[in-house]
Computed example of a mutant assay.
Amino acid sequence: MGGSRFSSELVRSSTDLVILALLRDRPMYGYEILVSLSDRGNGEFEFKQGTLYPLLYRLEREDWIRAKWETPASGKKRKVYSVTPEGTKVHEARVAQWHRFTQAVNSLLKDCNHE
């Protein structure tokens, strides 16, 4: 294994959680999400547009996020994504689940002297 990036399996299993977390912070358009993922994830979450947009469309179909077109002062129309009330519930449940999971893994690793 090795390298500084997370395995694709770890990233894939946490994408819904991190996208919902970002959008709970504030509504964002696609490119802004990509930059935020990279910046706030210390460069560990590198998504390509071809990966992000299908994920956003799926979250929209699940009714966890909502998209609307906006035209900012710059004049270029763009889609802005925000979390729905259902997405907020899902996010809160997943955060609680994530904390229980990471505590269990950390406990196991500590008990196995692999810390």
Rank of each mutant, 00 (worst) to 15 (best):
C112K: 14
Y57K: 14
M1F: 04
F101V: 13
H99W: 13
A67V: 02
G87T: 03
G50V: 08
D111T: 10
N42G: 13
E9S: 10
T51A: 12
I65T: 06
Q49W: 03
M28P: 03
E115N: 11
T88N: 09
T15V: 08
H99N: 14
S38W: 07
W64K: 10
S14Q: 12
R26Q: 13
S38Y: 10
L10Y: 15
L23E: 04
K68P: 00
A67I: 00
E32C: 05
T102A: 07
K77L: 05
K79L: 06
V80I: 06
S8Q: 09
E70K: 04
E86C: 00
K76C: 00
T51K: 11
D63A: 11
L20W: 03
L59S: 08
T88G: 12
V11H: 02
H114R: 14
F45H: 11
R24I: 04
L34Q: 09
F6H: 12
Q97Y: 08
R24K: 11
I19K: 03
K68C: 00
S4M: 11
V90H: 08
E70D: 01
E44L: 14
A104W: 09
V11Y: 03
R61N: 10
R24A: 07
P54L: 02
K110P: 02
T88Y: 09
R94S: 13
E62W: 08
L59A: 10
E44K: 14
K110D: 08
H114W: 13
L59C: 11
D111N: 10
E70V: 05
L17Y: 02
R61W: 04
G2L: 12
C112Y: 08
R78C: 01
D16R: 15
S4F: 07
L37C: 04
I65D: 03
N106T: 09
H91W: 14
R58N: 07
